[in-house]
Design a protein around this nucleic acid. Structure first.
Lengths: 210, 210
DNA sequence: GTCTATATGGGGATAGAC
DNA sequence: GTCTATCCCCATATAGAC
């Protein structure tokens, strides 16, 4: 049964490489991380990487798959179908944003990596915000629209704007280590809850026409 | 007077390099543009680049300087001091967003480059949105706050969120060639004016508490 | 499955002729 | 000032021993 032992060891190595990659992506970013660095961080030596992944992109794809699985689970944990939600209800909206925030936080390395990879790839640029944009926002907004709520603009545009804000804001906030943005205000650093509240208010008031 | 001739030729080369860089940044992005490419695009040969710039970053710095000059001019053209503005007035807010949009459009290559460079650099990540964030937004929001307007959150956080939205939305919109985001809606592509209207409504309603 | 050693190539950067 | 030629570093990727 040496076969299964070998497989187990390989599995261990794959996990070690993924873990190392996540650490480095969070620390220095995806583009600045060389395959060599990942190997070193994982305590493995040169050739090993290619025994498990064809390229750095493929590793990222694996991480994204892991992320998607977890994101789907978190989304499902919010129970019920999209048409039962009502984003014009503040509490529900906040719950959505909170899920987004915690998912983003939990997968920060992958988020950073996707973000940076999309800068270079072009193919990914358009498709990047989709898990958020289409999955969570666009449909909900269409729903509201059909339900007769007078929105601030075209649902697709609105969804794009809101997801842009959430993604970029979270990126700046988290990827820079939670330091308060702006910086001129001499206050104690705002908490994540404060940020989520602010985002909730902004979106809640912003998406409907007044 | 060969000295001045040489200087003039050098100046020409610098301009040619900058122009070539702008073209390529817009076309394939900053990170994907190699120094070699810029030289080829400018029709110059290998060594020339380093006679004028120490690195690609330095070239970008020069482009940013050009941009800042123009941006300052556009901002000044909106006349008057910051404390005379009132972002809670929809027309004034729209004018601000319009200036941002047109400035962004006019300097798309530099915007793309700054954006991408800041994503990778980390040093720049925080500092990137500042011309917009601090110059235009943060101060205005502080003003409103002091004037007793009840904002949706901490001015610094709000400013960061709004600038995040504007930058990311414009990036996705413009850098991907103005293709409509989302894409599932089978409508004719929305116009820039439509986008600006939407952003105006979103911000206008979003920043004040209701 | 994992290691060491090494081949390959792209792109940054410089030297020196013109 | 600009060109050609070249160096060199570093990351990717493979070969083959263990």
């Amino acid at each position: 049964m040496t076969g299964s032992i070998r497989r187990a060891k390989a599995e261990q190595t794959v996990l070690a490489l993924k873990a190392a990659a996540r650490r480095l992506f969070a620390e220095r970013g995806y583009l600045n991380t060389k395959i060599t660095d990942i190997l070193a961080e994982a305590g493995r030596s040169a050739g090993v990487f290619y025994d498990h992944f064809a390229s750095k992109e493929e590793l990222l794809a694996a991480l994204i798959a892991d992320f998607r699985a977890d994101a789907a689970e978190r989304a499902a944990a919010m129970d019920c179908a999209a048409d039962e939600h009502d984003l014009s209800d503040r509490a529900q909206l906040r719950a959505h944003i909170e899920v987004f925030w915690h998912t983003y936080t939990a997968h920060l390395p992958v988020m950073v990596a996707m973000f940076q990879a999309s800068m270079v790839d072009g193919e990914l640029t358009a498709g990047f915000g989709e898990w958020l944009n289409t999955t969570m926002l666009h449909q909900h907004l269409e729903q509201l629209d059909k339900r007769g709520v007078h929105l601030a603009g075209d649902p697709a545009l609105l969804a794009s704007a809101v997801s842009s804000m959430l993604l970029q804001f979270a990126y700046v906030w988290l990827a820079t280590g939670g330091r308060a943005p702006g910086g001129t205000t001499a206050r104690s650093a705002p908490s994540a809850d404060e940020a989520i509240d602010m985002l909730t208010s902004l979106v809640h008031n912003g998406i409907v026409a007044h």
